[in-house]
């Protein structure tokens, strides 16, 4: 971290995290990280038409259905979060 950022960065970091969903931080848990990964991948597949076709053909479903199920899966792609130990 460059010197001028050292003092301002922390105050801005929170703002940046709010702005750029999916950005990691030092205290990121494994669950958060993998959930972000999955959401990013699902969004990317929907955003690339050839990839969506590829998956639709493999699964034998209509493209609209595959897109819908993927958007649905973005809600919780990796199951519920793990229980916190301290409580």
């Amino acid at each position: 971290m460059s010197s001028e950022l050292r003092y301002t960065a922390n105050t801005q970091l929170e703002h940046l995290h709010a702005r750029y969903t999916g950005t990691g931080h030092a205290d990121l848990t494994k669950y958060e990280w993998i959930t972000h990964q999955h959401r990013d991948s699902l969004a990317s597949i929907m955003g690339h038409p050839p990839l969506l076709s590829y998956l639709a053909i493999a699964d034998g479903e209509a493209m609209g259905r595959v897109r819908f199920e993927m958007t649905e899966r973005m809600l919780q792609p990796c199951g519920p979060p793990p229980r916190k130990d301290d409580d």
């Binding site: 809600l75 919780q76 519920p80 979060p81 793990p82 229980r83």
Partner: peptide, 14 residues
């Protein structure tokens, strides 16, 4: 909105 289901280990919020 996924903010609640991301925090709820029981899966009820989901």
């Amino acid at each position: 909105d996924y903010s609640e289901s991301d925090q709820d280990p029981t899966g009820e919020a989901f």
